[in-house]
Amino acid sequence: MAQPKRVPLPAILLANDLLDGDVVFSTGNGWSRNPAEALIARDDAAADRLEAQAKADFAAQLVVDAYLVDVSIDAAGVPTPRHFRERFKTLGPSNRPDLGKQAQYASAHPH
């Protein structure tokens, strides 16, 4: 069976924490609420590992709605989703800079 087309790389894996609903990012061996700590998959093997984690941690009642998001990487090495929808997801409401990731993490700021 044909696999669904994967997003272009590099990519990060994001999800929502089941218990809290917060957006979380895969660090490769766990989940962080800080987008700067997201593991960046630059090749298919790394993306495969992230997808395997998504599947396992969904099954383990840790996260929901996990999926890969293609990113650009700035000079400091911080990933930013290419699509504006996912950018908001890593920032918070654009009308409330006091809420969401943008309020919590210095690296998360509107681009």
Binding site: N16, L18, L19, D20, G21, D22, V23, F58, A60, Q61, V64, D65, R85, F88, K89, G92, P93, G100
Partner: peptide, 28 residues
């Protein structure tokens, strides 16, 4: 039951929706 795995996400989703609980972009 959702947290201990006795309810799957597919089973739980309609139950939470019936109680007005959505999963949105940043949170529930």
């Amino acid at each position: 039951r959702r947290l201990d795995g006795s309810l799957s996400d597919d089973e739980f989703k309609p139950l939470r929706l019936m109680n007005g609980l959505y999963l949105q972009l940043h949170a529930y």
